[in-house]
């Protein structure tokens, strides 16, 4: 997974995405890609994985970090 390693922890790319969501609040995948400099396709794929891992949640068509996600980057 590009954003989560097999131990369920965020990778460096994963941390960048989570930090962007923590710092900017509700964001589109495009906004996360622009903020982090990570390619949009990797952001979309990573967000999908992080939703599955409950680190990110979808609100309407945007993304937000969860409490579990915040704890992992603190």
């Amino acid at each position: 997974m590009p954003c989560i390693n097999p131990e369920g922890k965020p990778t460096e790319t994963g941390k960048k995405v989570l930090q962007a969501l923590r710092d900017n609040g509700l964001c589109s995948a495009e906004k996360v890609a622009e903020t982090t400099g990570v390619a949009l396709f990797r952001v979309r794929s990573g967000l999908r994985d992080m939703i599955e891992a409950e680190l990110v949640e979808m609100v309407a068509d945007k993304y937000d970090i969860t409490e579990k996600g915040i704890k992992l980057i603190e």
Binding site: M1, P2, C3, E30, L40, F41, R42, R44, S45, G46, R48, D49
Partner: peptide, 13 residues
């Protein structure tokens, strides 16, 4: 090698 990817992930590029 960069995780699970769908064609849709590339939409817009």
């Amino acid at each position: 090698t960069h995780g699970k990817l769908k064609l849709d992930d590339f939409k817009g590029s």
